[in-house]
Write a protein that binds this DNA or RNA. Structure first.
Lengths: 338, 338
DNA sequence: TTGTATGCGTTATCAT
DNA sequence: ATGATAACGCATACAA
């Protein structure tokens, strides 16, 4: 069933059928109806490949994410997918893994598929060494590139980010304002966001005229989702002689591990120390007590990103950087709700 | 940059370039090298749309899932994506939502994109009323359809499922064998898997010659991921006068809610009652105590499914139904580890 | 082993 | 308002 079959049955040329299909105004209403009726009757749909060849686009968008089974990235993919679909685009998903080579290869794979645009989900895509981001800039030479929670200042690259710096700073200030200044800070990544958060943490101390001792900063390099291992990690830190009255995890899972540590060692949260997480994911409410966390507004972030993406594809001139605020969600692991 | 440019530069015809590109053996090594060198030099890659038009395939596969932000479905999508990529296929993701119309529309969308095959992720796709599954059978008329954790007996539909019946039965027997027979069973779906699990639960009682009172079966219809609401739900049941010494959640989140209920009301788990979940997802270890759960072998399930998918596309004759076993993971919420 | 010619199903540019 | 026809870039049957 092709456009020729329809044109024959309708007694018109394929050009007219094509016009009807694409909503061209230059078609007599009567002709349009006749053609539409036949299309309906035959259940005809245009061949997407041929259409793609002609238009040089299949309205497909490549979504790159390190690991779509990650609870946070999965949510991002979900919102992005929904918005893209609503805009008439087809998302092609590619989970790249966390290493650079995998990302490069995935990106090239999608470019070969002739996607209309690329969406890079998560700050993990921005490497500290700018040279390692060159492949992204190169890609931007072919199609517009959207970054979620990452910044690269380059033509045809559009960034949508949460103000993680400010959110983490506010979170920290909540504790400092209560006089809690010995805060154990746990992080597990050197990604763009992670660095922003750490800077926010530092900045809170500066604002209060306090000096932050580096020994309170601890990088966890174990299994991402192994709560037990994280708990042990905290235990090690405590045994090394460090004392603290709060723990901030740069990601929720670290905070969950901190609560586990408390339970395992008979400490009370927030009695003996407060615990805070980041991302406001489901696991903050699975924990006991539930964990105060930052909602970084993933949904509006994704909505904004896709709007920019589609806008750019439509030739609109849009700002290359959008920053949205985070929001602190108070729960029982802290005494911050006043 | 097209195949014509390459052919000119190499001084051969486009047919030869095409042969080189597609690994045809009938090319003189010298010619092949010359062509490959030029391709390399120019960084040429064939146009995917034109290729798709000619071959009537872009090696793309539609992945349908109700909600890829669901912790379990996200993992499934992850494994499936990985295996498809490894097989040289491109996954087009479509989150359908849980209602039938959304599923139908999504499926038709992907079919219009001319995917080579469809993968339906999760038992939610199988409606109790077989008539409602007709659109899936219709789709199977066009491309092979793969079902993860669902069964439809129909030509060109291939099913890969976990033996949820047996796994839930085994889980229940662990309790019955300990003399715990008043088990509160929580479920939140009437999907294919959910029914299988419930049947497994019932069957365990039958095997032991016990009669199961229907008042122990409770359907939770609230927000999927609202732990607080689930906790309240259990509280209501208890207040209605039902007494129990174990709670089985047909999904982990229900078990997490059960543990919350215990904490909120001063009960000890597993002292006052045991708690069991299903899916062995991350949240079982975020809970305190950690929750005994069934690992339904999602990774091997997905690997098997994709292997079948690619096999079928290659014309192999493969079984239309594969059943893999689940595995109980013992944790502190039960006294079952002997 | 290599080249020629045709088809794949559209869209778009001309004419009419 | 409508029709004829040329791209679009590749694969492939057929010739040589």
């Amino acid at each position: 069933m092709t456009i020729y079959d329809i044109s024959k049955q309708a007694g018109v040329s394929i050009a007219t059928v094509s016009r009807v299909l694409n909503g061209s105004s230059n078609v007599r209403p009567k002709t349009r109806k006749k053609v539409l009726d036949i299309i309906e009757k035959c259940g005809y749909t245009p061949n997407a490949f041929a259409r793609g060849l002609g238009l040089n686009s299949m309205k497909s968008i490549g979504i790159l994410c390190a690991d779509c089974s990650d609870i946070y990235l999965a949510k991002a993919v979900y919102y992005i997918e929904k918005n893209l679909r609503a805009g008439g685009y087809h998302p092609i998903l590619c989970c790249t893994g966390y290493d650079l080579d995998g990302k490069k290869e995935s990106l090239s794979l999608l470019l070969n598929q002739h996607v209309d645009s690329l969406i890079l989900v998560g700050s993990h895509f921005i490497e500290p060494d700018m040279e390692d981001n060159q492949y992204i800039c190169d890609a931007a030479g072919q199609v517009p590139v959207m970054l979620l929670n990452g910044i690269i200042d380059y033509p045809n690259i559009y960034c949508t980010v949460c103000n993680d710096f400010q959110a983490m700073k506010d979170l920290t200030l909540l504790l400092l304002d209560q006089g809690i200044t010995d805060i154990l800070y746990l992080y597990n990544s050197y990604s763009y966001s992670s660095i922003k958060k750490l800077n926010g943490f530092r900045s809170a101390y500066e604002d209060k005229g306090l000096t932050l001792s580096e020994e309170y900063l601890h990088y966890y390099s174990g299994m991402r989702e192994d709560v037990e291992e994280i708990s042990d990690f905290v235990s090690q830190i405590e045994k090394s002689g460090l004392s603290f009255h709060a723990i901030i995890g740069a990601e929720d899972i670290l905070a969950v591990g901190a609560v586990k540590y408390a339970k395992a060692n008979g400490f009370s949260v927030p009695g003996d120390f407060a615990v805070m997480g980041y991302n406001n994911s489901l696991i903050t409410t699975c924990s006991e007590p539930e964990i105060t966390s930052v909602d970084n507004g993933l949904e509006p972030l994704c909505t904004q990103l896709v709007a920019t993406c589609i806008g750019v594809l439509n030739g609109e001139d849009l700002p290359s950087k959008t920053v949205l605020p985070g929001k602190i969600i108070h729960r029982a692991s802290t005494n911050t709700l006043k």
